[in-house]
């Protein structure tokens, strides 16, 4: 199981939780598992998200490996100027 930290305003989609656990070995599996467990996250994930793994931010990458003890943070999709 991987522990995933969500940003605060997502708690309305997870029954009040911002720390959740899912089975996933990479980022694609992670996003899929989150939607399966919390269907209200689907539209948010489809709008675009990033995943930070051990401090590094990955945008739109499905096959980035996740270790069971990795720090995983779901983040909004971001862009700069």
């Amino acid at each position: 199981m991987v522990k995933v930290v969500l940003w605060g305003s997502l708690r309305s989609a997870t029954g009040g939780l911002t720390d959740v656990e899912v089975d996933a070995a990479n980022t694609g599996e992670l996003l899929k598992a989150l939607v399966e467990k919390y269907p209200e996250l689907e539209s948010i994930i489809e709008e675009g998200v990033s995943v930070a793994i051990d401090g590094l931010i990955y945008k739109e990458a499905w096959f980035t490996p996740i270790k069971p003890d990795s720090e995983v943070v779901l983040m909004p999709y971001m862009k700069g100027g």
């Binding site: 940003w7 605060g8 305003s9 997502l10 989609a13 948010i44 709008e47 909004p76």
Partner: peptide
Amino acid sequence: KFSSVPEGSSPNVSSYWEFG
């Protein structure tokens, strides 16, 4: 408005975010 916008907000609030 995005799904995270609290109920009762003005229709002009298109998104709401919370971090920390």
